[in-house]
Design a protein around this nucleic acid. Sequence first.
RNA 1: GGCCCCAUCGUAUAGCGGCCUAGUACGCUGCCCUCUCACGGCGGUAACACCGGUUCGAAUCCGGUUGGGGUCACCA
Length: 494
Amino acid sequence: MSATFTTASGADVRVRFCPSPTGTPHVGLIRTALFNWAYAKHTGGKLIFRIEDTDAARDSEESYEQLLDGLDWLGITWDEGEGVGGPNAPYRQSQRHDIYVGIIERLKQTGLLYESFATGEEIEARNLANGRDPKQGYDNFERELSDEQKAAYRAEGREPALRLRVPDTELSFDDLVRGEITFPAGSFTDFVVVRPNGIPLYTFVNPVDDALMGITHVLRGEDLLSSTPRQIALYHALIEIGVADVIPRFGHLPYVMGDGNKKLSKRDPSANLFHHRDRGFIREGLVNYLALLGWSLTHDRDVFSIDEMVAAFDVADVNPNPARFDLKKAESINGDHIRLLDPEDFEARLIPYLSEYVSTPPTPAQKAILREAGPLVQERMQLLGDAPSLLGFLFTPDDEITFDDDALPGADAAIVLDAAIATLGQLNAWSHDELERVLRESLVDGAGLKPRVAFGPLRTAISGKRISPPLFESMVILGKESTLARLERLRKIL
RNA sequence: GGCCCCAUCGUAUAGCGGCCUAGUACGCUGCCCUCUCACGGCGGUAACACCGGUUCGAAUCCGGUUGGGGUCACCA
């Protein structure tokens, strides 16, 4: 027999993002936040931001601040919750203890919660003795403990945890991304919701707060899929005592995988949201890539704006397969978004990544260089963090340029440099076209060199590198004096 | 082990019974452009896990097998 229950429908969408503030923000967690946010935006619903800080040992204020930082960076905002307030405050579970105590009391009175004294070892031993798999979990053994038995336990100095009585029926629900899922009777057992010290567990406070806050759609990670029947069982209990009136819809988002076949580990640098920001992902690029982890806009486009995502996003379209975090693809998408930036915007975003060369705010001279150099590199970068190696030479004094080993030409380049110095020394119209014209004339046409042989040493002289922004444009930015000084400096070294 | 989820090129995905000799993107790769590197353009590489059904017709529906993952805490 299948249990029947009411699900939320028709009403305005209310979704939530409810992280525990432990550690630095994980991209999988942020992806979950993004999907909830996008779904709220798409449906015109509300996103509630709640802090699940019921684990004092692991929770930290620093972690909470990082969460805010990360969400703010990506532009994920919420309509109700910690930081902005709302009718269901407080939004930190550590401040909601009194609310929980009242509900626990009512649940106890109705017999939906019962006292459990058994230790893990006792449960396992009993499973073994009864021929059950020791890993099978709790056996609902204490459902009908007599007062005498309870007193005996207390006489031993034991204090009871509280378990929820789950229905002895199968339980199914219609997952928004996976369709109908059924758990057979007996595959989920009575579980602890309150510790002996009276502090409720996540398994209790999460559904309780969802109910109290009127959450209609629970979009969360696949790791919570197996606990859904227990949550639904708790919802039944909450409905029975009038705390909830409907059961929300559930949608379990696919895992974000790392290399191999395991979840992207917290220890993997790729898991850390800020690692990507530090390397120069822009928010448009990272959001786009994160959205692609389990979702797609259309069959032939994977670069899109956040607005386009919001306009099209529906949980029902989320793919149930686990998604691998592919840094190469992410960087490529980011590069596309960098190219999409307005030049001034791009310039402004570059500055923090050039801190070793450019002061904040930049001096007028630095600003002028950035203005001219920005367009030269905007299409050459996948990450803003590429900027220092590409642009550093423009901010470095002529006599402090260091030459990369792989960029150093052979002694035969001396002829090239001599010719270039002679030619440029006489050039007065210091423009891109003139520079190219006279240098080609003297080196390529005159000396009969291949362009790459002719210009390679010049590139090294002015940038110190084998790879640089376009040569003539760079010379224009540096100016005649600086260009000649650099050419002469390399000439002397050879 | 019980239960649950998942299964299309190396990766992410499109596909929701005929439009599929399976599309797109990243990656890799050939050519073009070219002062380097990029960008851009034109090609190439490469996949429906397997076995049964249902059907006139299956990547698409059903069952099984195999493989992978998750979960069975007085963590969240």
